[in-house]
C-alpha cells in the first residue's frame, strides 16, 4: 500500500511491542496461530480495536494495555504478534477506502 511521503518515513505497520507508552494504536492483524488467539479475542483484542500501552511491568515483564476501557497485560512475545497502526493513520486508511 502506498503511503504519503510524511508517513512513509516510518513503516506504516508496526508490532504492538514496539509502540511507546501512551501512543494509541489500532490493531490491524493478529499473527497468532489457531485457537491460541481466543483468549485475546474474548477480551476484545480483535482487528479494529484500539490499544494503548499504559505501563511496563518491572524487569521486562508484561506490558499493560488499555483496550475498550479495560486493562490487559500482554507479554512482549504476544505483543510482537499483534500488527498495529497509529490511530491517526488508521483513520486515514479508512477514509481512503
Amino acid at each position: 500500500m502506498k503511503r504519503k511521503p510524511e508517513t512513509a518515513q516510518k513503516p506504516a505497520d508496526r508490532m504492538l511491542a514496539d509502540v511507546p507508552l501512551e501512543e494509541e494504536v489500532v490493531l490491524v492483524r493478529i499473527d497468532v496461530a489457531g485457537d491460541d488467539v481466543e483468549p485475546l479475542l474474548e477480551r476484545g483484542i480483535v482487528p479494529g480495536c484500539t490499544l494503548c500501552p499504559v505501563r511496563h511491568a518491572p524487569v521486562g515483564g508484561p506490558t499493560v494495555y488499555r483496550v475498550d476501557g479495560v486493562l490487559v497485560a500482554l507479554r512482549r512475545e504476544t505483543a510482537s504478534c499483534l500488527c498495529v497502526r497509529s490511530s491517526l493513520e488508521a483513520a486515514g486508511v479508512l477514509d481512503s477506502n
Binding site: L71, V72, R75
Partner: peptide, 10 residues
C-alpha cells in the same frame, strides 16, 4: 509446545 498468549486482565 508453544504456550498460548498470556492475557491477564487487571
Amino acid at each position: 509446545g508453544r504456550s498460548a498468549p498470556f492475557v491477564m486482565e487487571l
